[in-house]
Design a binder for these strands. Structure first.
Length: 212
DNA sequence: CGTCGGGCTAAGG
DNA sequence: CCTTAGCCCGACG
């Protein structure tokens, strides 16, 4: 009644990302039954995971090409194919590249995808990941850039030249006040108005809705 | 049974 | 108004 639409918490999103990183895209049921995430995602169904993952990867909606053409509504996603539990997100990059140009080695594509497909619109997406990482690392004194980079590379995906992108975004987040930098360490900034969320331990912290 | 893509619609901008 | 995001539905294996 109160919440017909149950918004996804950043914790659930993190669990979903981690689950995909470990089990691959499409293994929603497996992720759901994994003891690591089953507790967090207990309220979600396998279909919910799929839908959420789709909504998380909204690329286009760019200027102009808001095509609603019924004929050959390509978009992304091509072959579900059983990918190994190593790439996961790279699969998304691969089929996107599949649409744009010809086939290219994924290794070179992944960084390109991040540079080309991410530029301004999805800046908040990357920042979201950064905030997520800092929050999940939960270092009392804050986390160093290399630590953050390492976490993101492990947990999400590893573009080659990701380092300088991270630096820019960290600076951006610090400027905007979302992160606080102390001695080259970054930590989540305290909430503008409220303290911790109600009933939430400092572990969970805040930042449920940073999307704005 | 699970996954997938399309579509609907309540919220928020 | 328009975009977004959660959810539902039918199809397919």
């Amino acid at each position: 009644m109160g919440a017909r639409k149950q918004k996804w918490t950043s914790r659930e999103e993190a669990a979903l990302r981690a689950g995909i990183a470990k089990h691959g895209v499409g293994s929603w049921r497996v992720i759901l039954t994994d003891q690591e995430f089953s507790s967090i995602l207990s309220c979600r169904s396998n279909v919910d995971l799929k839908d959420k993952w789709r909504n998380m990867n909204v690329f286009s909606t760019e200027s102009g090409s808001m095509n609603k053409g019924r004929t050959a509504t390509k978009k992304n996603r091509a072959t579900p194919k059983r990918n190994d539990h190593s790439m996961a997100i790279s699969t998304v990059a691969s089929d996107v590249d599949d649409e744009i140009v010809d086939e290219q080695p994924i290794a070179s594509v992944s960084s390109e995808v991040w540079n080309v497909l991410i530029p301004k619109k999805s800046r908040s997406r990357l920042n979201n990941i950064i905030l997520e990482s800092v929050k999940n690392l939960n270092e009392p004194t804050g986390s160093h850039r290399t630590t953050i980079a390492n976490y993101i590379e492990e947990e999400y995906l590893p573009p080659g030249d990701f380092d300088h992108i991270l630096s820019a975004n960290l600076k951006d987040l610090t400027t905007s006040g979302e992160l606080i930098e102390v001695n080259r360490n970054y930590r989540i900034a305290p909430a503008p108005g409220s303290m911790y969320s109600e009933g939430r331990s400092p572990e969970t912290l805040l930042l449920e809705d940073i999307q704005g």
